[in-house]
Amino acid sequence: MTENPIEEVLTLNNVEVVYDYVSLAIKGVSLTVPKGGMVALLGANGAGKSTTLKSISGLLAAERGEVRRGEVKFQNENISGLMPQDRVKLGIAHVLEGRRVFEHLTPDENLIAASAVRSRHDAARNKDRVYSYFPRLFERRSSAAGYLSGGEQQMLAIGRALMTQPKLLMLDEPSLGLAPFLVAEIFQILSRINREEGLSVLLVEQNAIAALEIVSHGYLIESGRIVMHDTAEALKRNPDIQEFYLGGAENKNFRDIKHYRRRKRWLT
């Protein structure tokens, strides 16, 4: 190995994922997350955002998916063959879409359950840290998590991921179904954790407006392919992004969308 320090915490090279041996979900996705950086992966429903995250966290197997081609490198190490729990141990945390808290457990127990790969001592320390980021969870620590509000559940899902002491935090649509002020609050906390602890973040979002406010770079994925990659500033100014993801279009009709798709196929 060369002497230069690891610049990227995560690198995907031409990753191709197949479900059930036949259906191709992502077709050669490449992306990188710099160490301590915040990167967004934007795209519409079914574009392959969640599949990309699962190929990193190793949760594909549970859905009969597999990485057919390409490599997933975490801190310059190929992790393609590892079990999910080994990836968590390395420092990859995946906050699932739809929050997926352990509903019948209390928030406190949710956090304890999430510390399975860490020592008891670390668990106690991490729990204090999570409660300091999310004081509201501490207030509700002993009622069933299923009865928390949507925002609180999202906080718990993030807190649960933090319990694993991640180096890379991946979030799958944390803004889904939340009021705008809650999205702002949660995203602020994410930037704070990113700043204070140097935690790298890969944020998957449909809510491009909110996401582009806090990340430095963004990737745009469509039909399983990365079609655009740029800084957040440039993406915000990009007319296509404005039209299709930021709601900037005034009089859009279906012919325009077709036109856009056709043009994009030429580009890629």
């Binding site: 509903e103 999430a114 649960r160």
Partner: peptide, 23 residues
């Protein structure tokens, strides 16, 4: 106990359990 809590978590949601490193 800690291990008992982990088992209850598995029962609630297999995928979420995997995602936080539970075997």
């Amino acid at each position: 106990t800690r291990i008992g809590v982990v088992l209850r978590a598995i029962s609630d949601d297999y995928t979420a359990a995997w995602s936080v490193g539970i075997s």
